[in-house]
Design a protein around this nucleic acid. Structure first.
Lengths: 121, 121
DNA sequence: TCGTTGTACAACCATCGGGTTGTACGTTAG
DNA sequence: CTAACGTACAACCCGATGGTTGTACAACGA
């Protein structure tokens, strides 16, 4: 899968879409957890879930497309390794959302701290 | 939409699915940003995007189902307000992923700090 | 060498998701 | 009162997704 990576640490909308989309499935979240702890082959992963090897393969592909996971060849198997940097990228996004809200709160606070406004209370 | 909320601060897999799914669309992310800054009516939101009112209505419904947004009646319109607490819940989830990785790093560090192992270097 | 294992990939199927249009109805403004 | 506005919801279209099975092939082990 050819994945467009953003040039300058900036994430494109498509990339953000892929990251959250990839995390919106419990099997994929589980795969991320397991491969963050240590490298696991695709077949080893497949044995853990009540679905076909091909299905797990697809999940890994989705995660790889989102940059949440990388696959490294090791003999005849592919070791899947979770990518903590992608997690951090997602965290940054949520931090930005939270910052917006904090700004609003700050503005409201500033407003209340002002001299009593001309409008009636 | 009837949404199952978790009993004790714990998020169910379904809830996590909905949160990330809801964030996996740029229009919905934009709605969250705008409604975190201040309350906006559905029709005001609809005017901002190149799609029908009904489409925006659906996006708001998805966000509401994920708990990322609440709708409060105000005369004939519904004001949409972003829910910062839901953002925090998502942040906690990502933090848990990151913690897994930090644990791995910590274990590796501990291993390296040990006495030289009996195996050859 | 040859069977087994691990992977890749295509084809197919059912469901879901994001979009549309159309209809109905409560609320507000003139 | 009546027209315009804001919302809700159903029906529909179609592409994406999550699953399946089947085939092909490279790598490993005995």
């Amino acid at each position: 899968m050819v994945v467009q990576r953003a040039p300058q640490g900036q994430l494109t909308d498509d990339e953000v879409d892929r990251i959250f989309r990839a995390l919106a499935d419990r099997t994929r979240r589980d795969i991320v957890r397991r491969t963050l702890v240590g490298e696991v082959s695709v077949s080893a992963l497949a044995r853990s879930y009540a679905m076909s090897f091909a299905a797990v393969q697809k999940h890994v592909a989705v995660l790889e497309g989102a940059g949440l996971v990388t696959k490294l060849p090791h003999g005849r198997e592919r070791l899947v390794r979770g990518n903590p940097e992608a997690i951090v990228r997602a965290q940054v996004l949520l931090d930005q959302f939270e910052a917006l809200w904090r700004d609003r709160v700050a503005r409201l606070d500033a407003l209340l701290a002002e001299d009593p406004p001309p409008t009636s209370t």
